[in-house]
Amino acid sequence: MELTTHIDLDADKSLARVALIGSLNTDTAPGFALRLDEAIAAEMDLTVLDMAELDYISSAGLRVIFKAAKQIKGAERKLAAANRKPHIDKVFEILKALPDIAVFADDSEMDEYLTAMQDQVRDE
């Protein structure tokens, strides 16, 4: 699946809204990283990742988000994720619960687990 990214900059509110539509995976993460870099370069106080239309996220997508979060925090700005679907929210819950623990042998194993968790939540 493809990923479309829309960036909306609101200088009055010092807000960059980055809407993700589709799947953020190994294939789409590099392009998303470039688009997210564009939003970060605008130097808004808050960058919001609008995930209302995000259907899937893999470890490659998470790496892009975590790298951006570190970069934005270093510049004393903020990054937020909004409108997460339940299966996407589950991924963030899992990672929040295990912030410093490596529980997967490799990225492939982690992606399999994340896919299974997202499918399970979607099926409920």
Rank of each mutant, 00 (worst) to 15 (best):
I40C: 08
H6Y: 12
K96V: 10
L9P: 04
V64W: 05
G22P: 05
R63T: 00
E2S: 14
T115N: 14
V91Q: 02
D45K: 13
H87C: 09
N25D: 13
L20A: 00
T28C: 02
L15E: 03
A42Q: 13
A39E: 00
L20K: 09
L24R: 01
T5N: 07
K96D: 10
E2W: 05
P99S: 07
A52N: 12
I65Q: 02
P86T: 03
R84I: 09
L98R: 01
G22V: 00
Q118H: 10
D119G: 05
K96I: 07
S14A: 08
H87P: 11
D119Y: 12
T26L: 05
T5Y: 03
L15V: 04
I40N: 06
I40E: 06
L98Q: 01
P30E: 08
D50R: 07
T4C: 13
R17C: 08
I57V: 15
L54F: 04
A105P: 04
I88G: 03
E93W: 05
A19T: 06
E93G: 06
A29L: 02
L62T: 00
Y113D: 04
Q120W: 10
E112M: 10
P30H: 05
R35G: 01
L9V: 11
E43W: 06
D27I: 00
A102L: 11
E76T: 14
A11P: 08
R35P: 01
Y113Q: 07
L114Q: 01
L3A: 06
D106E: 05
A52K: 15
A97G: 07
P99A: 04
Y56D: 05
A52E: 15
E53T: 11
K85H: 11
I88W: 01
L34E: 14
L79M: 12
L62P: 03
L15A: 03
E38S: 12
V64M: 09
L3K: 04
E76R: 15
A33V: 00
A116Q: 13
Q118W: 03
K90T: 08
S59I: 03
D89R: 14
P86F: 06
R17K: 13
K70A: 11
D89T: 15
E76M: 12
L79W: 08
I101M: 10
I72M: 09
L62S: 00
M117D: 03
D100Y: 08
F92G: 02
R77G: 07
F66T: 14
D89C: 08
A81R: 15
F32E: 06
L46W: 10
I7A: 02
D27H: 12
L49C: 01
V18H: 00
E2Q: 14
I65L: 10
A41K: 12
L36W: 02
D45I: 06
E112I: 11
D27S: 12
L49T: 03
P86N: 12
D106R: 05
I72N: 08
A82H: 15
A81V: 13
A39C: 05
S14G: 07
A16R: 03
A33P: 02
A75L: 13
A11N: 12
A102G: 08
G31H: 07
Y56E: 05
E38H: 12
D27T: 10
